[in-house]
Computed example of a mutant assay.
Amino acid sequence: MEKAYYKPEEVMKLLGISKATLNRRAEDGSIPSELEEGRKRGRKYPKEAIDAHVKLLRRKNRAELTFGPATNSELWASYQNHFSLYEPEDIVTYDRLLEWREVNPDIFMSAREGNRRIAGVTIMPLEEAVIKSIIDGKISEQNIQPEAIREWTDKDLAVYIPSISIHHTGDAQKDKHRGRFIIKHAIKWAISLERQYDIKKWYAIAATLEGKKLVEHLGFEKIAGKRDAYLLTDLRKAIQPIKSFIDNLEEEGESFIPSPKAR
């Protein structure tokens, strides 16, 4: 089978280097190349080798992903990002997010690449009557009043999961990596909350097809309501299947994170 090769200019563009740097690194062997014995010109750059080299460099240069409590700036970034993912009626305004946070500061988490927010998740303990009003379409999430949000230390909690989302880059592999990371850490956070607090019920509304696939994979059951709502009543029983899901997340072909709206 005939080998495929990159032109020098293509290698320079892939690696972001000058011609002089390319020549120097090719000669010292740090960039893979082929040169016929006895010749000084006509160096070739095999695609298979260059692609592997580029892949390794990108992996080294990728900023470490971290997960932790969201800042106000990250809440603003989340609010802006939701316009590309959800319909207007499903978007909560920034001032409302800040009001919620005043009542319970531990309901928003962000995933970061370096210092930049790349994904986030919200999990909130909420009066069950309010959750049911959302499910029945009587109110929207924007109408959730701060006083309806409960403390994690309260008894008999009902928990509502409004969203899990990423900032899309247009790079399918990168977006899939971000999606896996936020899903994995959102689930681990939920399990940690379950172990610490008196949580009786977990509610979620699937505002997107991807969200529906995710809650169904996690063992949530469909419940009646105007909205596409799901309920999980015993997270502890579901922990083993959920851990198995996390372990196999890398092999999953499907995306469980909302895609950008078609324009």
Rank of each mutant, 00 (worst) to 15 (best):
A4C: 15
E10W: 14
M12G: 01
K13F: 12
L15N: 08
I17Q: 05
A20V: 09
N23T: 09
N23G: 03
R25V: 02
E27Q: 10
D28F: 07
S30R: 04
S33Q: 02
S33C: 07
E36D: 12
Y45T: 01
Y45R: 03
Y45N: 04
I50L: 08
H53K: 11
H53M: 04
H53Y: 15
V54C: 01
L56K: 11
K60E: 14
R62E: 13
L65N: 09
G68S: 06
P69T: 08
P69D: 13
N72A: 04
S73P: 02
S73A: 13
E74N: 02
S78N: 12
Y79I: 00
N81C: 03
F83I: 08
F83D: 15
E87Y: 10
E89H: 13
E89Y: 15
E89G: 02
D90H: 14
I91C: 03
V92C: 02
Y94A: 01
L97R: 04
W100R: 00
N104C: 05
P105R: 11
P105N: 14
D106M: 13
I107M: 03
I107Q: 05
M109N: 10
M109V: 00
A111N: 04
R112V: 01
E113A: 10
E113Q: 08
G114Q: 09
N115K: 12
R116G: 05
R117D: 10
A119V: 05
A119R: 04
E128I: 08
E128Y: 06
D136G: 04
D136Y: 11
G137M: 06
K138W: 11
Q142L: 00
I144K: 03
Q145P: 00
P146K: 08
E147I: 06
I149T: 01
I149G: 03
I149E: 06
E151A: 15
T153R: 11
K155G: 08
L157P: 03
Y160M: 00
I161G: 06
P162W: 14
P162D: 13
S163V: 11
I164A: 02
G170C: 02
D171S: 15
D171R: 06
Q173K: 14
D175W: 00
K176P: 01
H177M: 12
G179M: 11
F181H: 03
I182N: 08
K184E: 14
A186S: 15
I187M: 06
I187W: 06
I187E: 04
A190E: 11
R195P: 05
W202M: 01
T208K: 13
E210R: 00
E210H: 11
G211S: 06
L214F: 05
E216T: 07
H217R: 14
G219F: 11
F220V: 10
F220M: 03
E221H: 12
E221D: 13
A224I: 13
D228P: 01
A229D: 08
L231T: 00
L232K: 07
D234R: 02
D234V: 02
D234M: 04
D234C: 05
R236A: 15
I239S: 05
I242F: 06
K243N: 15
F245P: 01
F245Y: 12
F245C: 02
N248S: 13
E251I: 10
E251N: 13
G253M: 05
F256M: 07
F256Y: 15
I257W: 09
K261D: 09
